[in-house]
Design a protein around this nucleic acid. Structure first.
Lengths: 248, 248
DNA sequence: GCAAAAGTGTTGATCCTACACCCATGA
DNA sequence: TCATGGGTGTAGGATCAACACTTTTGC
């Protein structure tokens, strides 16, 4: 077909961010409160319009920096991980206009400082299980209401992506600070999967997988008990054999 | 921010299809020849604009029907499989305008009839390894030139998705006719992964995985040799334990 | 000493690979 | 009879779950 500008309808394109972290042994997501209609006052995933001269991943990185002050790292490095998740474009997903949203997934360590660069009054970490858990008529209040737009579905897809990727990749280290113990890494797996793991077998498994963990030589007692070795993330990105998620 | 139509730039949104099949023991992709600039005369992935009132997956299903006459099935059923792959939106990926393309992956059995509904003169099955293989200055001709736009990258992502998904899901059966033998299923794995598998261990593995294959009772000798049992795809979508891809 | 968390050893079950071997058809 | 692909048996190795046990700190 020849090029005809009237042959296609115009869309708005946005990026939405599923920013996950592990806080107090719970998987949490960054949500912001909407200040204007539609869904005014409701919690939503952070996001915004893609600019005219901007690639999708660049737009996601820009929104992440605006909301949290975080910058994505190279795929291999430690720290914040950013990847494209999926795209959502149902015709009625935004009542104002036709919007296609390219969702991205961010995995970040628990930030000791409050979220930098963002507006603390309108942004917070919400445990994912209260947002995604079964809707119980009793324990339900406005604070735990579903997210705006189709953001519940996007969050669910993001959590499921994180749950499966830590099985066969070293991505769980993205939830940890630059130096961490085996026990801290295990608590990440337990929080993301929502299961209890055997500490002894877990230790053998992760320290025995080549390229997963590199000892730094230091130790720490911040968890109490016997001092634990400190590790950094190794260069390996794919785990072979994978971590096994217990069946529920 | 209040709603302001001038606050966001308009985009065109398209769907592109990576339609894969296994023909003559080779993984092949459906490509169409472009009839107009840019990239006139070059091969490209099929695709088209998303309509104003159309969901993304519906647009992909419509394009698939227009190009091949195929219809996607429910996730559980046998036959054509359709899923979203990824979204590509570099500012310069189409010289005419700003286009964001939501790529979809289709897995189809080898079609005995030529591609129905499409234009046979301008559509063909191309082996993926000649499109993606290392660029060798000798064996390179226009017929094997890279695809238009960023379709080489999209194809590579689609092939990689198919390679990994048949490890832990029963999706390989989407490449097979409704009834098939264990040997035919094995040749699918060998074509997609590009490796040779032990027929004896493969047989034990797939017939021993609960829910993967259901015997129909019939047999066939279409491959020569001893008659082989015929199977249909079972209800299982996730394989536990997964098929193991040999390391190269 | 005692609690707590970090590690190591061991055992039996499960799964995988490799290959010997048999089975049922067409030519 | 032979070639061809289908299918079963079996032995050795790798991996895993379960759990007893030792180590090293803070209190």
């Amino acid at each position: 077909m020849p090029y005809d500008p009237s042959a296609f309808p115009p869309f708005a394109v946005t990026v939405d961010l599923v920013v996950l972290t592990v806080r107090k042994d719970a998987l949490c997501v960054l949500v912001v409160r909407r200040g204007e209609p539609p869904y005014q006052g409701r919690w939503a995933l952070p996001g915004g319009f893609v600019r005219d001269d901007e690639d999708l991943e660049a737009a996601a990185a820009r929104e992440l920096a605006e909301e949290t002050g975080l910058r994505p790292h190279a795929p291999e490095g430690p720290g914040v991980h950013l990847e494209q998740l999926a795209t959502y474009g149902a015709p009625d997903r935004d009542p104002r206009m036709r919007v296609v949203s390219v969702a991205h997934l961010v995995l970040a360590p628990d930030l000791p400082a409050p979220i930098a660069g963002g507006d603390a009054r309108s942004a917070r970490w919400a445990p994912t299980d209260t947002l995604l858990g079964p809707v119980d008529a009793n324990g339900w209040d406005a604070e735990q209401a579903p997210l705006a737009f189709d953001h519940d579905r996007i969050l669910l897809d993001g959590v499921e992506r994180a749950r499966s990727k830590i099985e066969y990749s070293s991505l769980a280290t993205a939830f940890c600070p630059p130096e961490f113990t085996v026990g801290e890494l295990r608590r990440v797996y337990e929080a993301v999967w929502g299961v209890a793991l055997d500490p002894r077998n877990f230790h053998r498994k992760v320290t025995g997988t080549p390229g997963f963990l590199v000892p730094t030589g230091g130790t720490t007692t911040r968890q109490g008990g016997r001092p634990a070795q400190l590790f950094r993330a190794g260069g390996a990105t794919l785990l072979n054999p994978p971590m096994l998620r217990p069946e529920i």
